[in-house]
């Protein structure tokens, strides 16, 4: 605590008036209450994560008779082996298929729609109506329309397939993606579009050669946000699939937990394994991931 305080006490500039303070990017000083809340909450966040990891490395017997917060005396990967042998490779592949299959097309069609709305919205009532529709779509919670979706999926005979998860995931990724991508395309200077047009480029060509490179950061952000949403999705697989072969990771996790509820270390190893891909991505692209998480919500 003491060191923390020391490090944060603003360099006692009391002697000098605030003229020399360099606070360009941080208008707010360190504050005690915020710091306290920040550090305590950090502990609350980290503790369960630490516990998951160390417990997943313990044998089942050790789990029951050692201190839960003590690291394992002899760490074992036995639980991981057990989880991998329980078809988690299959579930992992399913999750990848569903995520890529939903997010790829969703971002593509959203990008096209956003482009159309920004470029043509001023002169087309149709495009303005489409825009209004997507804005309204932001307010539709997936859970609330899950029953008709279930009916549609049965009717088109896609129940218990990965496609059944992909289609609604794709559709529900569209409104927010259009909104965010539209905001970025709007920032592209009009003159650039104009000069593309002068050069005789088609709208389709302009979309790819001008808008695409200039909105690439936004596309990455949106892809990450939607990817995470679909990857972690639970309701759609729960309702629209049935057989173990079609399970995605969150659902598999839940089933696994139901089946081996006494084998806590194995259950936690499955939690670690399903989270590992995302954590790896997080380490690689933290900045983009975090901006992706608040996509469209914070300016």
């Amino acid at each position: 605590m003491a060191t923390m305080l020391d490090s944060r006490t603003p360099p006692k500039a009391a002697a000098q008036p605030p003229v020399k303070r360099r606070r360009r990017s941080s208008p707010v000083h360190w504050n005690f209450a915020g710091g306290l809340a920040g550090w305590i909450w950090l502990a609350i966040v980290v503790m369960p994560i630490y516990w998951i990891v160390i417990t997943s490395l313990k044998l089942q017997n050790d789990y029951y008779d050692t201190n839960p917060l003590a690291p394992p005396a002899d760490p074992t990967l036995e639980n991981y082996r057990f989880v991998l042998e329980s078809d988690f490779v299959q579930y992992f592949i399913n999750s990848v298929i569903v995520t890529v299959g939903a997010v790829g097309p969703a971002v593509l069609v959203s990008f096209m729609a956003a482009y159309a709305i920004i470029r043509g919205g001023a002169g087309s009532r149709f495009l303005r109506a489409v825009n209004g529709l997507f804005l309204m779509g932001l307010a539709i919670p997936l859970q609330a329309v899950i029953i008709p979706i279930y009916l549609i999926i049965i009717r088109i005979q896609m129940y218990d397939t990965l496609g059944a998860i992909i289609l609604p995931s794709l559709a529900f990724a569209i409104p927010l993606s259009v909104l965010v991508l539209g905001n970025f395309i709007r920032d592209v200077p009009k003159e650039l579009f104009e000069s593309m047009r002068m050069d005789g480029a088609t709208e389709w060509g302009t979309l790819w050669r001008l808008a695409f490179p200039l909105t690439r950061p936004a596309l990455v952000t949106v892809t990450i946000y939607q990817g995470l949403t679909v990857w972690n999705g639970f309701v759609l697989p729960l309702i629209l699939t049935q057989s173990p072969e079609q399970r995605t990771l969150p659902l598999a996790l839940w089933e696994f937990q139901g089946q081996y509820s006494v084998n806590i270390p194995a259950v936690l190893a499955s939690v670690v394994l399903t989270t590992l891909p995302i954590l790896t991505l997080y380490v690689i692209g933290r900045r983009q991931l975090l901006s992706g998480l608040t996509a469209g919500f914070s300016k």
Binding site: Y115, G120, G123, S124, R197
Partner: peptide
């Protein structure tokens, strides 16, 4: 530019 909107609607 607005007049070109017809050509983007399909997107």
């Amino acid at each position: 530019s607005a007049a070109g909107s017809g050509s983007v609607s399909w997107m």
